[in-house]
């Protein structure tokens, strides 16, 4: 799956770009809201992981843009804007575990899974490894 990962923290971008790539996804990153419109051009992402605290971002406008393009979103952070189209969005609060993010991606409506993502089983107890 082509995923756009947008978060202000560079370490989050670095870790999860690698983890999502290992899960078989093609990942594009953004650390500022201003970068997003040009990343949506062309063969845009099939899903977006968006930190709601991303700077340079009008949350309501960008979520509306994703909804109009039928791009499902995993929203990272606190409460969604009131007028957000919740059908298109899965919320995930910080701090989250990698398997929780993978499970949220799996649960997105209309997403297309790539082969190799079957290992991202939600609820796996890391402590048992």
């Amino acid at each position: 799956m082509r995923i756009l990962l947008a978060a202000p923290d560079r370490d989050i971008l670095m870790c999860y770009e690698r983890l999502l790539s290992q899960e078989g996804h093609e990942v594009t990153t953004a650390f500022d809201g201003m970068q997003i419109p040009q990343l949506l051009a062309g063969s845009g992402p099939e899903a977006v992981i968006l930190d709601l605290d991303l700077p340079g971002l009008d949350r309501s406008r960008i979520l509306r843009m994703f909804a109009e393009d039928n791009i499902p979103v995993v929203a990272l952070g606190e409460a969604l804007p009131e007028n957000a189209d919740a059908k298109n969005i899965r919320s995930l609060r910080y701090p989250f575990l990698p398997e929780e993010l993978f499970a949220a991606l799996e649960a997105l409506p209309g997403k297309r899974s790539l082969p190799g993502t079957a290992d991202a089983a939600p609820g796996k107890d890391i402590g048992e490894r």
Binding site: I12, L19, R93, F96, P98
Partner: peptide
């Protein structure tokens, strides 16, 4: 302030294991 660092620490640990 704790939330993002915890997320990063866990993701780093996951990457090391992999």
């Amino acid at each position: 302030e704790f939330k993002v660092p915890l997320t990063v620490i866990n993701a780093d640990a996951e990457l090391i294991e992999r």
